[in-house]
Amino acid sequence: MSPSNLNALYNNLQQSFNAKPCDVKKCGSLLAQLKIALIESGLLLPHGENNLHDLVVARDILEIGAFWSIRAHDVPSFDRYFSQLQTFYTDYSSVLPPSKRELPIRGLNLIRLLTQNRIADFHTTLESLPIRAEAIADNPYISHPVNLERWLMEGSYSKVWNAREEAPAEEYKFFVDSLMGTIRNEIASCEETAYESLPLKDAATLLFFLNQSDLLKFAEQRGWQIDLAASTITFAKKAEEKAEIPKEKLIIACLGYARELEQIV
């Protein structure tokens, strides 16, 4: 494919990506063609010296691809685009002009790790961000996932709930929705242990349900007992666990000590 062709496709992609509403299907097919073009010109995973302009174009295409994957609700595809972009962000960072979309994409990646509950990866990625730790608070794209993580860990679920409207970019909302499902389950498991019973109305507020039927469905899934007359939920207390003596373990340990002592004496 000739470079002019690549450029034409690229312009086409930019147009349909920036158009409102964005034409997800068309972008997808354009991206597929563009990726082939990139591979043919050796720009998908560049190494060595390359034309600066070409690199910028390639990076733009991949960035659009990453955003497109979110709009198309395709997380694995986002993952692939993100790892392809890593080359541009880390290895060519000294050559290329910084991209406006870099931090939003990195922020999206952080949220993705959060929704998949990969907290360890989340922190590793956070450490390797190109901005200083103190500056995180000033950047909306990064501070959003960072705050979410902190609230989740603390248990300030209402803050997470309220923050869903404050997403710094349209794409963040996709993840935030799936985050809500996780939170609800977290809260539910907390309630099971922390309360004996709860009025239906309060349970709905605590779990952020707007109407009762949703709550009832949810309660059914978790196996809660609902007393409609008194309109309360009762949580089945787990029976007090009987303290059992782990005989086998103790015997093994004692035998181990005996053997080692024998060796010493």
Binding site: E154, S156, S189
Partner: peptide
């Protein structure tokens, strides 16, 4: 906020940090 406190205490109870329960 109090609301936060309730969630946080709930989580602490679930994580086994403290023993207790909330009377809503």
């Amino acid at each position: 906020s109090e609301e936060d406190a309730e969630y946080i205490v709930g989580k602490a109870i679930r994580d086994g940090v403290i023993e207790g329960r909330i009377v809503h």
